[in-house]
């Protein structure tokens, strides 16, 4: 599904050039659950942003679903993104002025799905995430775990091929964190491909494979056989 080769990303200021990704290469197959780990500043979030087509790379190759997307402009990337990728963030990133239902619905609005169909799909995913009873509440009225469930609902409502999760349990207590990880595992079992950035060894164990990074480079890559 994803194949990156010698991917490069650097940030320049007037005096410094900081290398965030140093010719990194790896592959993610359909249906995999991959964790990316590494200390702060190792480039894992930058990598996730590029995989999510929120940011562009400075060099190398990025093949997504057999298409070379490295040179795509923002419009093309946005189009690819909205149909194929769902995002889960550490800080949930729900829009405070929209209800649970409306937050999830937003993902469908941009793909141009009709209202009646949207309603059906949103209700279905909210049921699946067990937050149907909170559909008319605003994010600030929910607990952290509930907010992350809404965020996950939003990420999957479009049936994306790929889910990208950036420290999904970072803002949650361990019990709620485990619930969220169970949810992601369940989605993976149902066929979703997941790439997750995490600091937590505990969370990483939920995945099939761990890629460890340091200073923008891939250091190791382990398959988790016990999973």
């Amino acid at each position: 599904m994803i194949k990156i080769e010698k991917l490069e990303k650097y940030f320049t200021t007037e005096e410094y050039k900081t290398i965030a990704l140093n010719k990194i290469s790896f592959e993610v197959k359909e249906g995999e659950f991959v964790s990316i780990m590494g200390p702060s500043g190792s480039g894992k979030s930058t990598l996730l942003n590029i995989l999510g087509m929120l940011d562009d790379a400075n060099g190398g190759s990025f093949i997504f679903n057999d298409q070379e997307v490295i040179k795509y402009n923002e419009r093309k990337r946005a189009s690819l993104r909205k149909h194929n990728i769902g995002f889960v963030f550490q800080s949930f990133n729900l829009i405070d002025q929209l209800t649970v239902f409306e937050n999830v619905e937003l993902a469908l609005i941009y793909t141009g799905i009709k209202k009646s169909e949207r309603k059906e799909k949103v209700n279905e995913v909210l049921k699946r995430m067990q937050i149907m009873h909170r559909r008319n509440h605003f994010p600030q009225q929910l607990s952290g775990g509930q907010q992350q469930r809404v965020a996950i609902a939003r990420a999957v409502v479009n049936n994306p091929k790929l889910i990208l999760a950036d420290e999904p349990t970072g803002n949650l207590d361990s019990k709620t964190g485990n619930e969220v990880m169970d949810l992601l595992t369940e989605l993976n079992n149902q066929g979703s491909t997941i790439v997750m950035v995490t600091h937590s060894e505990h969370d990483a164990k939920y995945s099939n494979r761990i890629i460890r990074m340091l200073d923008g480079e891939k250091v190791t890559e382990n398959m988790l056989v016990n999973h």
Binding site: E74, A78, R81, H83, F87, Q97, L106, I109, Y110, T111
Partner: peptide
């Protein structure tokens, strides 16, 4: 800003 970010993530183009 967060709303704009989320909208962009969900596929909103600059023109929309």
């Amino acid at each position: 800003a967060k709303e704009i970010g989320v909208r962009k993530v969900l596929g909103a183009g600059k023109s929309s």
